[in-house]
């Protein structure tokens, strides 16, 4: 059974050592720059010259490419193909086929959008691979995120694998009793209730006890709270963050005034 559910890979690298908030800023900045920048090749350049090298420096190259291959290539491929084929407009017809009319302009636009989406998702994958959720939440709580919200995120990440394991057990059990999870549409709809029912009610009933348990540990105490974990925040981190903000502003300015 998996103890936790996240992309995080524990390694020692300069990227891992960065403050989580710095990495979050970096991920958002890369997304915003790739969407704001008026230059057509920005997204592609960011992917090739920033995100890929950072993944290598962060020593998560293999995991990064595996995740990108699994999550991104099919999606961006689909979007690129569909948009090249179906987005209307454009003068330079590349080819016609049946009712389709594919133009250079629509292919170019499809490529731009797919690259932006690839950049957006891959920069978050990079962020998640190198940042432990608990460290991120501790750091964000220190910066003003309510502790309750951090609690929700961390405890969901821990409950989720338990629930998925339970779901697997229920599916296996119901199947062995002859429940059809394949077959006609009606049969599949009917299968939903016996699968979902026990899972949902079981987990909802536990809520009351779990609420008592965390209250017994002063969860909703109103006084100031402390944190055992401390997350480093170096001058280098701050420099990187301000640099990112500056680049985002610059790309915005370039879009509107350039």
């Amino acid at each position: 059974m998996r103890e936790r559910l996240s992309f995080y890979i524990q390694r020692h690298s300069p990227i891992h050592r960065l403050n989580p908030f710095t990495k979050l800023t970096l991920a958002f900045a890369l997304v915003l720059i790739s969407f704001f920048s008026p230059w057509y090749w920005t997204a592609l350049c960011l992917i090739l010259l920033v995100i890929f090298p950072l993944a290598i420096i962060g020593r998560v190259g293999r995991e990064f490419f595996a995740a990108a291959l699994r999550l991104l290539v099919p999606v961006t491929g689909f979007i690129f193909l569909m948009q090249s084929l179906f987005l209307p407009g454009g003068e330079t017809v590349l080819f016609r086929f049946w009712f389709l009319r594919v133009t250079l302009e629509s292919v170019a636009r499809a490529f731009l959008i797919s690259m932006r989406i690839f950049g957006m998702v891959s920069s978050f994958i990079l962020f998640l691979l190198t940042t432990h959720p608990s460290e991120l939440m501790t750091d964000l709580t220190r910066r003003g995120l309510p502790g309750t919200v951090a609690y929700v995120i961390i405890s969901t990440l821990q409950i989720l694998p338990q629930m998925q394991a339970k779901a697997q057990t229920i599916i296996a059990a119901q199947r062995s009793r002859g429940l059809a999870v394949e077959g006609s549409f009606i049969r599949r709809v009917r299968a939903l209730v016996p699968l979902v029912g026990p899972l949902v009610f079981g987990s909802l009933v536990e809520v009351e006890e779990r609420a008592i348990a965390i209250e017994a540990r002063a969860f909703s105490a109103t006084g100031p709270k402390t944190s055992y974990r401390e997350i480093d925040d170096t001058p280098f981190d701050r420099t990187v963050r301000w640099l990112m903000v500056a680049l985002v502003v610059l790309s915005l300015a370039a879009r509107f005034f350039g």
Binding site: E206, A213, I214
Partner: peptide
């Protein structure tokens, strides 16, 4: 129930 007494907030 020992399981329900785990806060879930910590790793």
């Amino acid at each position: 129930n020992p399981f329900n007494q785990i806060s879930g907030a910590k790793y």
